[in-house]
């Protein structure tokens, strides 16, 4: 077993729209270690979300290879893809993407519902995760009754409940004010401390600076990929 949770080699992806073809990813090489916390930066339209969707098996790639936990991910049927997603990956979105008519606890428990865990059991587990997010007393509130920060914490709890190996977060703080953004980042760092790899797509330097490694995309290729020294410094400071 190698030490990388995500390994991408010479990855290409084009969007074909009728006779138009848009080459978005033009040969991406990337290796993310187990338990690593990485940010992907780049200007709007540089292909960050496209890459993240492929990593999340929400979309196919055209050429190259992608290994998730040493499993070669190729074109597969949706049932299989759903199983991999449920088992390995937790998603956090910019717009939270909670189900509006389910309360906080039910939203968190949803991935376990798809694993056919009984309602009682999955709700108990969901309560534990809400507790960790400091949202126990909000368990029975609908998303519409919660603040943006609370919603994102619920979304993180939902991503965690199926015990994934990696969390993919597409601009998780994009809809939050800076104060709340920092709180969410603290939570993600805590999650990372438990050994779960995290990939954060962002275009905010403040956010990227809190990750161990920063990968910059530009026009579908990796422009730079380096260890974030300020992260280490910060860690030292904390210690």
């Amino acid at each position: 077993m190698s030490n990388s949770i995500i390994r991408v080699e010479a990855l290409h992806k084009s969007y074909v729209n009728g006779s138009n073809s848009l080459h978005v990813l033009k040969g991406i090489d990337m290796d993310i270690q187990r338990g690593e916390m990485v940010s992907i930066m780049g200007s709007s339209g540089s292909g960050k979300s496209t890459l993240l969707n492929i990593l999340g098996i929400l979309d196919n790639y055209d050429a190259g290879s992608y290994h998730l936990d040493d499993i070669h991910i190729t074109k597969m049927n949706e049932t299989k893809a759903a199983q991999y997603r449920n088992k390995y990956i937790g998603f956090v979105f910019q717009s939270f993407n909670l189900i509006s008519f389910k309360n906080a606890m039910e939203n968190v428990a949803l991935p376990l519902y798809y694993q056919k865990v009984s309602r009682k059991k999955r709700n108990n587990v969901a309560m534990e995760y809400l507790e960790r997010m400091g949202l126990r007393e909000w368990a029975h509130h609908l998303p519409s009754e919660l603040s943006g920060g609370q919603k994102q914490r619920i979304a993180i709890a939902r991503a965690l409940i199926s015990k994934p190996k990696v969390i993919l977060a597409d601009e998780p703080t994009g809809a939050l004010d800076s104060q709340t953004s920092m709180e969410v980042m603290e939570i993600l760092k805590e999650v990372n401390q438990t050994g779960i790899a995290i990939i954060i797509v962002t275009h905010e330097n403040d956010i990227a600076n809190q990750t161990q490694r920063i990968i910059r995309l530009r026009d579908g290729v990796i422009e730079s990929n380096h260890i974030n020294h300020s992260f280490k410094l910060e860690s030292v400071e904390v210690n």
Binding site: E78, T79, A82, R85, I99, P111, Y114, Q115, A159
Partner: peptide, 16 residues
């Protein structure tokens, strides 16, 4: 549509 997309992303199978 969106809810179905979310459900799919967090592990709902087509059959679900």
């Amino acid at each position: 549509t969106k809810e179905i997309g979310i459900q799919r992303a967090i592990g709902a199978r087509p059959w679900t």
